[in-house]
Design a protein around this nucleic acid. Sequence first.
DNA 1: AATCAAACCAACCGCAATGAT
DNA 2: CATCATTGCGGTTGGTTTGAT
Length: 543
Amino acid sequence: MVSSGGATVEGLKGPLGVMSQSLKKGPWTAAEDGILMEYVKKHGEGNWNAVQKNSGLMRCGKSCRLRWANHLRPNLKKGSFSSDEERIIIELHAKLGNKWARMAAQLPGRTDNEIKNYWNTRMKRRQRAGLPIYPQEVQEKAAVFHLQQQVHNPHHHHHHQKRHHNSSSSPSLSSLLTSSQNIATTYNPSLSLFNNFNFSSPQNHHPLHQNQANSYYSDNPNRQFKLFCNTNNMNSTGFSGSPYNQPPSAAGLLFNQNIQTVQPNNIPFVPNFKFESENFDHDHERDVSFSSMIAGASIDPIDHFVPRHEAAELPSSQMPPRPTTPSSGSSGGGGVCVMVGNNTTTSNDIDVDYKTGEPTKTASCISNSGLLDALVQESHHLSRNDQKLIYSENNLSSMAEDVVAEKGKGVVSSEEGGVEMMVKNEGDANADNQWEDLSSNSQSSIGMKRSEEPLEEMNSMDDDLMSLLNNFPASMPLPDWYQGGSNNISNASSSSTAGGSNVEIADHQPNVPPTPSPPGVASPEVHWSQLDSYSWNNMPRIC
DNA sequence: AATCAAACCAACCGCAATGAT
DNA sequence: CATCATTGCGGTTGGTTTGAT
């Protein structure tokens, strides 16, 4: 139902029986766009129904909001998805199902609609072709992920939905796997979605940086706009044309700059993507497989996976940027400062009074509060529930082992959530661990809720929090910086790595760092979480 | 060049959550 | 507490573009 001050939609009569002004439908014209942009520029987002009243735009508020969110909003990326984005989408979809908005939150500049359309076309095309929707690895990991959720919270049903109609409509893993006939692919489980980002994409300077870092300002659709408004107020560049094929948005650029400036050391980021590469033969066939998985054979496989060896040999212009702060690197979270105009503030909390142009809220910018506090709190929480978690994980492990024992490698249906999991073989343990480590970081990014997120969501242990918990070290110590202690890279690395709660079904020693690295040495096999911790411990004071 | 189908994309619709009153 | 307005999300539809024949 669309109503706006008694006005009704097209051709219907208002409450007084007077034919109201009909609201236009259909494609937007440039003039309408201009009106809407001007309106938002002037009044800000929200109160969309007022647009029609105040601007004379013959569009319902809903339509205005959609138009703004999907097309006019600054920092929007246009054009086809990069291979990195595609991978992220696949991975997120495996975990989240049809949570387009949440997926969009992890893909800066992308809208839920875009992602949805992408998925519905390319992925369902694969369904029709009888090809697997997800790489085997993703299937496995998503299955573990979902299983974790069930174990951690038996009442937390598979893809718990607040909205009932979604519960049945979110195909996610099980249905898609079913429909995709579970055809095994040659996809190598060692190839995580996140450990194979290539850095050659001109648009995505660093997928992880962009995705995870920017997610902090993109995970709330409003956030980007607020940034924009701030920027706009500062230098009036907010509506500077299409971002397509342009350098990152002003905010994004500044953000990235900030990332680099706060990075204390020159540890190449490559190590994150080179875990024990010798263990896994990354052949081209696999690339092709995954490429074709994404979009038939239309995507250049080279663009999908840059073999680790090659990644390390990228020209400087394509070399991954220097490691980011943990805040930019997902699991770290924390108040990321973004230089906007002359103001330094968090990307999270910029709010602008559109009348004065002044920021009205800079909550978590003040200190390391916000995500970091939340992190610490959750750490405490997790510590308190350590035994429970351990139990759960052991339980899960035994469950999975039972499954493995029973089925060997194959597709298994779990009772509760209908999650069909491709049970990995033991040989994939390492790869899976890597996957988990990486995805857990990613997941942390996904799941990490800012402190100002509705408490209800935090308390209700929804998907995000569950994701966080599932991937959070069960006995994670307080970061040194938080305790005011010295920064010890190796300690931090091991502490972060050890006891990772990522459920590792296969043979696994949860309390032993897999590849201890000398302090400060950027070993090519530096563990993701190690790096993360490293960054965490070297995190400069926020704002 | 014409036709058709597939792919792509923008927009609409319905439902639910949330906030305001 | 109830009601209403607003907002957000996900599903679906329909128009346009693109590519194959």
